[in-house]
Amino acid sequence: MEHIIEVKQLTKAFTYYKKDTGIIHSFKNLIHRNSLTKMAVEDVSFSIRQGEMVGFLGPNGAGKSTTLKMLSGILHPTSGSATVMGYTPWKRHKDFKQQFSIVMGQKSQLWPDLPAADSIYLNKCIYQVEQDSYQRTLDELTDMLGVRDLLHVQVRRLSLGERMKMELIASLIHRPKLLFLDEPTIGLDLLAQKAIRQFLRHYNEQTNATIILTSHYMKDIEDLCPRVILIQGGRITYDGELQDVNAEYGDKRIMKLQFHEHVEREILLPFGNVLHHDGITAVIELESSNIADSSRQLLELLPVSDVLIAEIGAEEGIEALFQRQS
């Protein structure tokens, strides 16, 4: 299948100013400012096929959003190249913009004092959608999201979840082939998160639109994206199937311990990798082959009041990956 997105050695550096607090520095700043450079994205390469759903994962400020912004043409890269649907995004060609959409959880395109229907209609005019197609898409999307009766309520009176649904409708009214979602579920309650996830999966199946998603919520990624790209410190540290993240942890187990007396971290070290420790509770990662021996020894030697042994889930797997590499 053909690649809809091809990224090669994309790099973005930001320059910013440093300012120390205090009045002396205020005076100093009158004369001169120190400039610093930060590599937000460094030497990133990947490609994505039409119809894929890919999740960008990574801690705050890792470069997920910056990458997304370069792919949607908002930012110029410092170096490297990207081809999206045959276009170079930052050339901002009109035909390119006509075929994709971006939804940002923290930025709204709706007019807050007007019903969402008006903002959606504005997008219809901006994207030059034919009347029939507009009506059909609008009906379809409002039904799928179950917000038909909310179309004529002012946006500022809607709940956050309802608002996000309207954002999605406004962004999809021109039936884009490619959809970027930057933290689409941020701040939403669990029910709304679930509804949005369901909708996105459904939409992807129905239209074969490519969806690229960043999220804080592991659940979003786990549910939606067979493939994840981990970004840390501006670099890709993992690109592959979500299940495979666990593969290298497949033979490992997590042991959660509770003590009734204080236990030093040093005592736990010989048993495995101590992921968490506060004296009264601890989490240890250990080989599954050792699990029987280790647990017997632990129970004998230490004042254990409770123990729980679990397989490593995707969430813990990724957490462990983050920890190992940072």
């Binding site: 949607s72 913009k97 994709f100 959409s101 940002m104 930025k107």
Partner: peptide
Amino acid sequence: GGALDMMMTKPM
């Protein structure tokens, strides 16, 4: 505030 980001992606 970054609201420009959204507008930049519009074909206008």
